[in-house]
Design a protein around this nucleic acid. Sequence first.
RNA 1: GGGCGACUAGCUCAGUUGGUUAGAGCGUUCCCCUCACACGGGAGAGGUCCAAGGUUCAAGUCCUUGGUCGCCCACCA
Length: 994
Amino acid sequence: MDEYGRFEWALVFDASKPGPVYSLFHLDVNFIRIGDVESKMAREIPKAYEPNEVEQRWAKAWFEQKLFRAENSGYGPRFSIALPPPNVTGSIHIGHMLEHTQIDMLVRWHRMRGERTLWLPGMDHAGIATQFVVERMLAKEGIKRQDLGREEFERRVWKWKQESGGVIKEQMIRLGASCDWTRERFTLEPALYRAVLHAFLRFYREGLIYRGRYMVNWCPRCQTAISDLEVVHHERTGEIWNIRYPLIGADGKPSGTEFLVVATTRPETMLGDTAVAVHPDDDRYRGYVGRRVLLPLMNREIPVIADTYVDREFGTGVVKITPAHDPNDFEVGKRHNLPEIDVMTPDGHMSEVAGKYAGMERFAARGRIVADLKELELVESVKEHMHAVGTCDRCKAIVEPRVSTQWFMKMAPLAEPAKQVVRSGLIEVVPDNQRTVLLNWLDNIRDWCISRQLWWGHRIPIWHCADCKEMVPATDSRVEIVDGHARAAGVPTKCPKCGGSKLTQDPDVLDTWFSSGLWPFSTLGWPDDTKDLREFYPTSLLISGYDILFFWDARMIMMGIHLMSDPNLNTGDISTLIPFRQLYLHSLVRTAEGAKMSKTKGTGVDPLQMTEQYGTDALRYMLASMAAPGTDIILSEDRVLGARAFANKIWNAARFLFVNLEKIEAQGISLEDLAAPEIRARAPYAVPGEASLAHRWIFSRLSAVSAEVNDALEGFRFHEACQTIYHFFWDDFCDWYIEWLKPQLAETNRDVAVPAWRNILTVFDAALRLLHPAMPFITEELWHKFPQRAGASRVAAEALASSQLADGTGDAGAPGLVSIALEDYPQPNSDWPDRNAENEMALLQEIIIAARNVRAEMKIEPKKKVPADLSAADGGFRRIIEVNLEAILRLGALSSLKVSQGRLDSAGAAIRSTAQFDLRIAYGEAVDKAAEMAKAKKEIERLEKDIASKEARLTDESFQSKAPVEVVRNMEATLADRKTELVKLRARVTQLSS
RNA sequence: GGGCGACUAGCUCAGUUGGUUAGAGCGUUCCCCUCACACGGGAGAGGUCCAAGGUUCAAGUCCUUGGUCGCCCACCA
């Protein structure tokens, strides 16, 4: 892969499936320069939207044009965000896609608001996970990593990384993620390796990293220590055995009758028992403390000790103490100076000190031991027992607590400032309830085991002196490139303590989350004081799943605050040290059963496959529209279909515009005249005469919708943003505005047609820009069918004009980039809100709907237009109705509408009434009188109930005195309307029954 | 053992600070292949907001208790 990430497209493969999979950018798609994709295909829009070709074309164009380089964004406030680096263990799944969609929506939104925007992508080497995947692949060839040796194994993993990383990148590009790929990073690349060494050495010098022999979680499958967080507890029904330990009598021999009975769920560990403990205040056993028991099977005498750790209520009140295999026993052992006997090997077999069980697999040994004890009649009882079993997060093997020598990081001192910034809101956590979760975890933080007995990762930069065992750190954090990959270059040559020269590097590597913890700043060039670091740190926002809140988010906060406090880089003001200002925890995608998606369980959904089926935009929209903060998402095909239909609707709205454009172009009016950027900028255009209402209304709506969408995105309410735009586009724009305007657009009178066209194209363009963050491909495609100017060059020109470039704030970006992604995001416009237009439009819509309703109820033939009468008391209303008569007749399918003031004779007619008007359509032959009647009666019932409850409320004195005046007024007004409606309905019923 | 979340239309889910007759998508019923769209248009039906108490002029929304389900954390043999 070269510097700009051109990689081999031809053959890539996926961990879960054998053989090649995606070839996203078909080679026959020619390179298209953004801006060249003009409206040449505008006249040949297919009837149904076919997303695949469009998406591939744009994904490729965006990528190759480096459209999303930070330099191509505006010069407003900075907005920076680091991609949670996907593991290079395979391909991305639907969960990634949800995350990337949300990030991308916000990134595109900020970019369109003219902010200096950086979304920095990259990948994580994912030590244990990747090593696991590669080991599994090797196992298919019958090879173990030990057969290959460390260097060769690492080479194999690197090879895997190139392939897998390529796939992930390709997928992300294909899914429209607007990352700045010129800044792509990888946790094991030289620069980041150096950052890791730098961080480690600093923590080590400060005494925050130490080495010691402690109880850790050991995975016998992976053969490495893992951190507490990597242990997943599962409730399981197991067995608990009560075992008799014979007491040693005064004669120094085991008694045949006196026993202490201990309970255990792991009998195999008894081989390492070095004591038996009781509570010091337990009267039952007071006399036994200080005596000895004979450890069965091993025939080793061990003491009976007293320790308050023992719970008198549990079991028999006697506990076997196995300091090498249980965290509590380890502590007890320390307090009582007990020996630690490790009876297990790293791979989960019984060790050579396990007597005759040596070499047996741990669970086989358990069975054998129980059988032997039974034989000796030392098993007093066996019971079923529910308990939590710890398993390895990665490979699911049962974890053994085990004493071993590992590297640890002291967390309490780092947690303090982290708590401070979270508690004070300096880092805002959304949703807020997660803040409590985070603070609780920080309050109970424990030291972090950071060493792993793996080969894939950053090797610990400490050397051990063979002679005096002194630990010698690397001289500095420099790295050298060997075999194409980084390693520590500051190799110490001499032991500073004894002068010995036999130094060997510690074999362990660091937990993968150690390097992840540095991600927000290591990717920006830290530990160097780079331009990017100065410009983009602290990042604005972190979006991650709540499942890695402790693994990653919390550690970034702790490590960021600590490491960025380097006096050379920073003033020490804590608000400049934090890695991100906001933390948004997104929901997880779950299966229908509510379980987490899992590739190993085969419940994962392949986003690329869904993309090909439904279109990326549809999938993105579906995910975003379901992403309400704080709730998990269960995928449903219905929702994707709905989203696809939406994309199709957008497509066809455009199709309508372009097809009809031809007609007006025939009159010598060009698209340029109607939709050039400067033309659109001056909208809305006044349409002469009576036709203005719909225009005033749609711009009023557009302003309101812009406000709502911006507001929703500000608060991470993606679903609300989606729903608002959806409703605006489909209902307001398509169903009402387009329909309303059809005659105007076809008008031969240019004074009407031109402003109408300018307005509708302006609104459509705004709608595309509103939609763009959620549906980038279709909006880019359609937007390019209009005359556009170059976005990036505009940005640069503006910057030059305000001389921002002169002081080195950045280069001008590539000239000539034309993309909706570089356009302005629609904002509310204070000139547009028009309450009258909204009210009037609402009234007219009600009339039209009433007409349609009557037609449907009366089963009038769809094509047959019928005459109607309308009565309204308000003169203003009558005027509005008369002015907009054409639209009412057309959309309500009426042949005429006689507007009057008086009461309408309802004999032989169907009537729809509201408080404002009555609409009357004469009966045809086939009318279901009974149905009309039933309907009216039902409505009357509802009204009566409503009126009764409102009257009760309004006559209640405390309501009158305590409720806000406005609420009371509103209710009075509504009540009056209801009463009017009721009177009309009653009259109607009387007439029907006569 | 702690903590968190969910329970609203047949299904999947919205409902920010309590305030008119609780919304959407899908499904469903009826009518339409009307010259942008059947991935469409039009008109409907459909909900005692898990239960019981409480606070309030007013509760899907706040409080308490209980139920069902899910998740996270936790060294009880």
